[in-house]
Design a protein around this nucleic acid. Structure first.
Lengths: 223, 223
DNA sequence: TCCCCCAAACTCGTCCGACAATCCCTGCAA
DNA sequence: TTGCAGGGATTGTCGGACGAGTTTGGGGGA
């Protein structure tokens, strides 16, 4: 029984929570899919209460949507929602990048962001969707952590970045043209301690991402 | 107040959720206060599961903090957390104000924001903390709704504005000097459809608020 | 008298079982 | 084909139970 093991880490709801997020990245769950509580109870071997708590946390973060008396479903972004989200991420990531740049001198920050960028720039990593996704998450997480704004760190996971990443993973063109050069620009600006430059670079990156997404066919979106 | 998000057809957990948020504004609960599940079960006459769900939603929004094997408590902001939060709100509110200004022509937007501002500017309303808080929430909510960015609307209630408002309510000086003139500037910029101007006005307002909070004595903050 | 340590009371995390409410699919009838 | 009733599936909510960790009050030792 994984009870004791689970309790140490994050508890049963955490197991389900992480299991679903991970399953999303691994393709086990796809946008629109139904998440039946009884199934999850069986799959993760936890009580139904824990499943419900995990689901409501996921719903709070916008990853799944819960409808009254209907199964929770993996949320799927419409074209408009995606546009809104990208616009919001532009602002938030710009803010995060600026803060990070302003604090690059403190503690081990310079080293941390350098490492995060290094693994992102590794061509080996770039070939593997899963590894690249992880490296990218680490990069962003490091950037936010450097900024040392606790409230921003709390809020960032509550955006739906994960959804964007997963929903459009099939359309690799979205990433390929854009990603590495942009990340390099962001990293260098942060490394220089240039706040405004980092903010601009981050915003530019997100805007390019948004432009690429705009060009995707309707089939990539929900409703 | 994030009522819109949770209020609709939400059952027992919603009752508890709204009861706590409302109690916060009414002074029934104060920052730092312990929220024992058993007590809430009795007070709201719902099952413990519903209480827990409400608490975890409140925790997700940052209004309460849940401690392992210890009662949940109404979160109380430290000086640093407040500073972080204000910096974040500056960015988000600036964004919201800009979007609102850009869309003032659409639908009934001009009328809506005018009404929201009118009740905010009513001296009668300003004397009553509760009524003023409601009017201010309406103003902000209208502003966000005008922007029509669904993701921003989803994220805004997950900041801890409510906490700031409640925690420093005793120190009226924070508000008095600042509020009305700033709100007027924001409103007028939005009404003119001047995006950048509205963004600046909103940011200025938040920054002034932050300055006022910085001057508060340590007693106003948590550990 | 004062301080430290331990046992009991609290409280939360989790599981289980139960029941009603609601949704939705299926099959029957017009 | 269309409308409708019935039943299975699924969620919403409750109550009880137990383990684990925290807090607290009292007794023993210095």
């Amino acid at each position: 029984m994984p009870k004791t093991l689970a309790a140490k880490t994050d508890g049963s709801p955490g197991v389900v929570y992480r299991g679903i997020v991970d399953g999303l990245y691994r393709g086990r769950y796809v946008p629109g899919q139904r998440l039946v509580e009884a199934d999850l109870t069986r799959d993760f071997e936890v009580g139904r209460g824990s499943v419900r708590e995990a689901l409501s946390r996921l719903a709070a973060e916008g990853l799944v949507s819960m409808n009254l008396h209907r199964s929770a479903t993996i949320r799927s972004l419409s074209r408009n929602e995606t546009r809104d989200l990208v616009a919001l991420l532009e602002v938030l990531n710009g803010f995060a990048a600026r803060l990070a740049a302003e604090r690059v001198e403190e503690g081990a920050n310079r080293k941390l962001i350098a490492e995060a960028y290094a693994s992102l720039a590794d061509v080996e990593v770039q070939r593997d969707f899963l590894r690249f996704a992880r490296a990218r998450n680490t990069f962003y997480k490091t950037m936010v952590a450097m900024g040392a704004n606790h409230e921003l760190a709390r809020l960032m996971p509550r955006t739906n970045v994960d959804l964007v990443r997963v929903q459009f993973r099939a359309y690799t063109t979205v990433d390929d043209d854009v990603r590495i050069e942009d990340y390099r620009a962001i990293y260098e600006a942060i490394n220089e301690g240039a706040g405004r430059k980092a903010e601009t670079a981050a915003k530019t990156h997100i805007r390019r991402l948004g432009d690429a997404i705009d060009k995707l066919p309707d089939a990539a979106f929900a409703g």
